[in-house]
Simulated assay, not measured.
Amino acid sequence: MKISLSVTDIAKLMQAEIAAGEKAVSTAIRDAGTGLKTAWRGQITGAGLGARLARTIRSQNYPAGNNSLNAAALVWSKAPAIIGAHDTGPLIRSRGGLWLVIPTDAAGRGRGGKRPTPREWEARTGLKLRFIPRRTGPSLLVAEGRLNAKGRAVASRSRTGRGLTTVPIFLMVRQVRLRKRLDLARDSDRAHSALPGLIVRQWAKGGMQPSE
């Protein structure tokens, strides 16, 4: 069988193959980036860190709106400090050798739903905090009050002291190690390992097909 191809035909075939390659690489990169974003979000919600934090994971494809053999995808978080802390499990120390103050459930929430500081808590409740040092376990900041139906410490309205109790409001520690709850590198490695196969499969869909 004799096959004849002109230079023009070869040029068109090569151009079509390049276009197929650009589309294959861009599509594979986009799918890999989207898959990694989904995997990271799944890790975050699976670790009990909430859907709000999971939604901080974003992805962006480059070049935007065009196919390229040099396509790339960026997957990142809009809350890198929080995500990074849960990914590495760092040791957190207080500044200047002071105390780290950790609110208990009895402290409730401050303005905007944030954790209150001892000064903010005293101003909000009208109660005074008292420091109790302990040799084992965290030291405490406690207040004399009562627990309401929501488990929050409030001032007692009883003139006889009925229901009055000593409530731990804040835990005081010199340092604390945050438990590692994420393994983002694991999903990143999987995405990188799967990428060559994704490109080949996408290229086979749009590239030149062998003829009999």
Rank of each mutant, 00 (worst) to 15 (best):
T34P: 03
L127S: 06
R58M: 08
V101T: 05
L164P: 01
L98F: 10
M14L: 14
G108I: 00
G137Q: 12
M1P: 06
K180D: 05
D189R: 12
L5E: 15
S68G: 05
V200G: 01
T45W: 01
V154T: 08
L69A: 09
V167T: 07
R58D: 04
T56D: 07
G50V: 11
E144F: 13
A51R: 12
A20M: 06
A153N: 02
R134W: 09
L198W: 00
R159I: 03
S26N: 08
R41E: 13
G151R: 10
A185T: 13
I169Y: 10
T166G: 07
G50F: 07
L147A: 02
N70M: 10
L164G: 04
A39L: 14
R52N: 13
T160G: 07
A71Y: 03
A32T: 10
G33K: 01
R52Y: 12
V25K: 00
I92D: 04
R93Q: 12
P116G: 10
S158C: 02
L140G: 05
L53S: 03
G46A: 03
T34Q: 15
E144D: 14
A64D: 04
G65V: 04
A39V: 11
D187V: 07
L140E: 11
V7A: 11
A85Y: 01
G33T: 05
L182F: 07
P210D: 05
S6Y: 11
Y62S: 06
T88C: 00
G161F: 09
I92M: 09
A107K: 11
A54I: 02
W76N: 06
Y62T: 08
T38L: 09
R95M: 04
V142Q: 00
K2D: 14
G21I: 13
L69R: 13
K205H: 09
G84M: 00
G48H: 11
I3V: 15
G137F: 08
E122S: 15
I169P: 05
G113H: 06
I102A: 01
R159S: 01
E144M: 08
Q209Y: 07
V176F: 15
L171E: 07
L98K: 14
L98N: 13
S139Q: 08
E120V: 12
P80N: 04
L100P: 03
S77L: 03
A54C: 00
R190D: 04
R30K: 15
R174T: 13
Q202H: 06
V101M: 03
R41P: 02
Q60T: 03
R58T: 00
L140S: 09
S77G: 05
E212S: 11
L184G: 00
G48N: 13
L100Y: 06
L182V: 03
T45G: 03
A71P: 07
G48E: 12
R93W: 03
A185F: 09
P210G: 02
A71Q: 01
G48D: 08
W76A: 12
T117C: 08
P210W: 01
I169K: 05
D105F: 14
Q175W: 07
